[in-house]
Each structure stands twice: as C-alpha cells, then as structure tokens.
Design a protein around this nucleic acid. Sequence first.
DNA 1: GCAGAAGCGCTTTTT
DNA 2: GCGCTTCTGC
Length: 750
Amino acid sequence: MTDYLSSLNEPQRQAVMHGEGPLMIIAGAGSGKTRVLTFRIAHLIENGVDPFRILSLTFTNKAAAEMRHRIETSVGYEARNIWMGTFHSVFAKILRIEAKYLGYTSNFSIYDTDDSKSLLRSIIKEFNLDDKVYKANAVFNRISGAKNRLVSADDYLNNSIIQADDKAARMPEIGRLYKAYTVRCFQANAMDFDDLLFNTNVLFRDFPEVLYKYQHKFHYVMVDEFQDTNVSQYLITRKLSAVHQNICVVGDDAQSIYAFRGANIENILNFEKDFPAVRTIKLEQNYRSTQNIVNTANSVIARNKAQLRKEVFTENEEGTLIDVIKANSDNEEGRLVVTSIFEEKMQGSLRNNDFAILYRTNAQSRSFEEALRRLGIKYRIVGGLSFYQRKEIKDLLAYLRFIVNQQDEEAFKRIINLPKRGIGDTTVAKITVSAAENSVPIWDVVSNIHQYVSGRATVPIDKFAYLIKSFMLMIDQGKDAFEVATHVAKTSGILRELYEDKTVEGLSRYENVQELLNAIKEFVDNPENEDKTLGTFLQSVALLTNADEPDDDGDNDRVTLMTIHSAKGLEFKNVYVVGMEEDLFPSQMMLESRQDLEEERRLFYVAITRAEQKLTFSYAESRYQWGRLKMCEPSRFLLEVDQRFLNTTKATREMATRETQPAPMGFLKNITQKTAPSRAPVATHQPSEGFAPSDTSGLTEGQKVEHPKFGFGVVSKMDINGTDRKATVKFDAVGEKTLLLSFAKLRIVE
DNA sequence: GCAGAAGCGCTTTTT
DNA sequence: GCGCTTCTGC
C-alpha cells in the first residue's frame, strides 16, 4: 500500500507523510496538489484514523466530487464516512442539526441570490427608498461583504467608519436595510449563502458546548484552495482545529481569485501566526504543462508585488509557442478559434474533451457557441444560467420549499398566484398587512383566511391553502421526495400549464421539469441517501450550482466553454484564452471599483496554467455589447507576457508587411502609446522564419504553396474581404481546406 | 386581475 | 440584446 509513495517527489512525500500538527502546503499550479491531498487522507486512514474524524473542505462542488472519487478509488468504501464537501454544504448540514440553538428549525430554507435580492427589493420599497439609488444588487453586495467579515447588522449600524462610507456613497440607509433583511430572513426561517458561514460562527461563538462537540468530533481538518477562503471560513476552521491542531491547508497565493468575495490572502500569513508550530511545504514542480506554458505563466505573475516567493518549474518538454489570434470582430474570433480547434483536432488526433475555451465573463460564450454549432462540434457550457436557476425549475422548487417551510416568504411570493388563480398584488398586500397587524406568520393568515380577510379573493386563497395542506399531509404520511414532488407538479397545475404551451420554449420547459423530477427520482433511488425526505433533497439542491447538472445525453466528449473562475482546478490539453481585450480582461469594473489589477493578473495566471500542451490567446478588435458595436484594444496582459514565448505570426500578418514598423510588437502598437507609462518596456520580437507572413501577400489562385502542417497544395480560391481573408487550398495529402488566419503560414512554392 | 406593450438597466467572477 | 418591471386598456 505504501508503493504509491514512490511515485511522489520529495516535498510531496513529506506532505503526505506529515502526521500530527498544523501543516501548510503551498502548491504551485499543476504540482499534484489533489494527489497529495488524496494520498494524505488515504495515508491517515491506513494508519488507523477513523474516517469519521476527518473533515475535508473544498471550495466548489466539483472539487469535492473529484476528491471523493479519487479517495474512494484509493481507500475504498470507508471513504464514504469522511465528512467532505464545500464549506457551504458542510456547515449547512451542521446548522440543520443544531438549528434550535439559533432559533431556527432544521428545515430552514436556503435563499439563493435571487431570493435575497427579491427580498431586498421588497424591503427597499417598504422603506420608501428610491430604488434607483438603492439598487438591490449594490445593497446585497454590501451586506454580503459585511457578513463575510463577520460584521453583524448591529455592528454595521454602530461602526462609524462604515456609516461614513455609506453616507459618502449616498446610501446611508444600508445599515437599516441590513437589519430589516436579517429580521425577515429569520422570520422566514431562511438563511442566505453568507448566513451559512456567518451563523456557523455565531453558533460556535455563543454555544461552546456545540463547538466542543465538533472540535472533538473532527481530529483532522483539511482545507483545499485555502487562498480563496474568507475570514468567516477561516475562523470556523481555526476554531474547529483548535483542540487537536491537526489542520492542513493547501493553497497557492498566485491563484487567489476570490478577493472580491472577501477571500483574504492574509489568511496565509495569519495561519503562520495562529499556528506557530506550522510546518510549511512548497510544491514547486509542475507536472502539467510544457516549459513554454510554465514560463509564460511565471512571466505574468512575476509582475505582482503581493506574492510569496515560489519557483515553479517543470521538467516537461519545451512545447510549442503560444499562438496569438487576432480577429476583427467577436464573431470572427469565434470562427477563428473554432477553426483552430478543428484543425488541431484533426492534426493531433485529439478529442473534443481535450479543448477548453476560457473567457472572463459568461456573456462571451455566444460567438463560440455559434461557431461550434456551425462546424458540428459538440460542446458543453459550464456556468451561466444553471439548470436550477431556470424559471420553471425555481417555480416547482418554490412549491416544494413552501411545503417544507411555510415561513418561506420568497417561495410564497413565487407560488401564491402560479399558475394564475386570481390572487393578484392587492390580495397579497392585504395578506401581508394583516399578518403584520396581527403579528402572526403569513401562513396563519392564508390557512385561516376567513378570520382575517373578507372579500371575493378568499375563495382562491382557501383553495390554495387546501392544496398546500394536502401536500403537507403527504409529508406527514412519510412519502418520499419523489412521490411528493410528482404529486405537486401534477396537482398544482404547473405541469399542465407547461404542457399546454406548445411553443419550443414551452416544450423545453416541460422537459426541464421532467428532468428535475428525474433528478429527484435518482436522489430517492440512490442507496447512499438514507434520508429520502423532501427536506433533505431541497437541502442538497440549494447548494448545487452549475457544476454537476444532468448531461443532456450520454456523449461526454465535448469542448468545454467556461469562465476562468470555473476553470480553476481543471486542466486541458489545449486551452484558448479568449477575449484578451483591455477593459474586458482585465475587467474595467475590477480596475475602476477595486483597483485590483493584481487579482486580474492572478486570474490570467490561472487561465494560462490550465493548459497542458498548447495555449492560444485570442482577441477581437470590435465586439457587440448591448447591441452596440464597441471598438476594443488588445489587453495589456498580452504585453506582459514574455514575448519570446509567443507566436504572433497569426496576428502580425498585416504588420509584418508594413516595413515601416519593424520591431516593438507592431500588432499591439495602439495600446502601447495610450497607457505606456505604467507598463514595462516591450520586448522586441522578430517574426519567426520559414513561413513568414509576408509571403502570403501575393497569394493568388492557382499558386502552388506549402503549409507547415498540411504539406503541398494548390490555392483553389481566394476570398478577400477587407482584412478578412480566406484561402481555399487543395492539399495533396489532406484534400481541400479553407484556411482563415492560419493561411499566413502558407509559403509560396513557385 | 390580466395580457400585451413599452421601458429600463444591466454584465464581472461563485457558493 | 434580453429579461424583468411597469404601464395601459380591458
């Protein structure tokens, strides 16, 4: 069993073998971090540690699932018993068990961001504040930020600095909104995402006996992606491991990309203060990427001042240069990238799975989707509108939530008139007012409507209450989640309404609801889930996001499209980092509101280090945004890369022919002037020899050419439209091919 | 109370 | 460009 140790390098082995006491692993990108963590847990279990006593915290569901899978393969069934999951899911579980300490019941609802904002909108309206000034989004972010720093509503109101800040931002009432929001969540027996962490801190602070219980339950605590934990998360783990001191954190400061959410690099520094006995191990050898990729990444991150010194290196092969693709529009960018994928795929006999397209914002996916569809390449989009955020799904889930927790105000607002049953805003307002006047929960009013309200709306309300009660009865009778959910979907009229909608969207919505029911069925049928009640299902689903959604068919060989944030922890043979434009990446908002160029740069670093074999950057010179055409400049990040690692022949095509502009990276010249002072000098670069782009200037039909990959051929068609040039070439070896930018590689033979 | 029309604001990134 | 909210007329 110890033979796996031989496959590790020295620092890796030390990290795995480390026994008792605090341990910090600084793991560079691609340094085998997950392997080390997995082996370490396996090693503990092998040495007699009860899996029940191990708590392993990750940041995303994906990472948790991956870890569980890997440990199961090396440890076997025992791995089941490890407490493993995201911060949010693990502490939601604990909060359910200990809910009564905080005045909650164990079936509390979890408000997602939409619920939170909707509640805030209501409160803002009730306070008679201008919703143009108090935007739900901004208020929510402010409150969220406070919670992540463990600032309660009362702390917030009493803190003169915060109050001054809010006054300066012309939003002095945020403190009161925060307070009202907290009260309303509590009345609704609901917690938002931040509450799951905030309330765990409160629980452990105010009830030492509860803290004691968990401190002694968990002998070993592991934290993955430590650089992304915020103060609230860090304090929980610190408290939990205070007794046994067996805390192991793994992180990489160079990959800290969640400061916007309150993640704090200083946690790494604090860790050494809080656990003076800490042993620090650095994993610096990269096993993932080629030298060119590693060096590119290093050359980028070296510009950051805030970083722990670390020497990431690799013994892998040198690899190819990093291609730079320049397109004149977002649509062309999509076409060029996808064409390149197509060519790479053919030429290197790769699978769709080997490719990822990474972008800064979800909205950028469109042009790539279109191009992929056109070429018939299967793809998968991670993130964006997740399955569980679709209207029809949220509608059915709202029913289920309300049946489990009748205090859930947001769920109530969603379903009271859905499908239409003649209960409009006026009636809902009456109910709310009446509930407030009599200081009883809304459900009391609804279920005994005749005692509180009279009028013609009482009839549909009575019917609604009767409907809900019949659902609640099913739960009391011990029906499982699937039985209740199917019954609700049918009886409530949701399914019927969608079924009658014969439009394409209607059909797809109907299918989505069926899909949700399937997921519930799977949940119920899964022997690992002992508790098959609706409440437990809802709990598991509330914290699920884009990560593990049911795949629409069995074909998993797809090109992956996602934001760089979601790509963290993943790796692909070929990676395209697209939309390399100033204001987009680095994001304008980031620079305007937080002045944090370094976090954007770390994000760039993360993107680069996802690639194993080949990396490509692309950017467009113009892009549609809100239906308007916007001119774009290449990102400053393209200049920051050590230019020796770039292959700019694709991009420099036009520039190279313009002899007047020889050296400094002609293709980026417009931005060098605009923001030059803040930047490092630009490296000079000579176009690569052999297939110099200038050779294509005189390309005409009938010419014999040579392509570096496809060999000899004859130009059968030239299509020149401004700067957008297309050449169709009939190659001796591979037949006819349409070359877009890559025809710059053609060499004229005669 | 409801349906269709018009208007507005929005885009970082995730649990 | 889209989705959500508000407006308007019935």
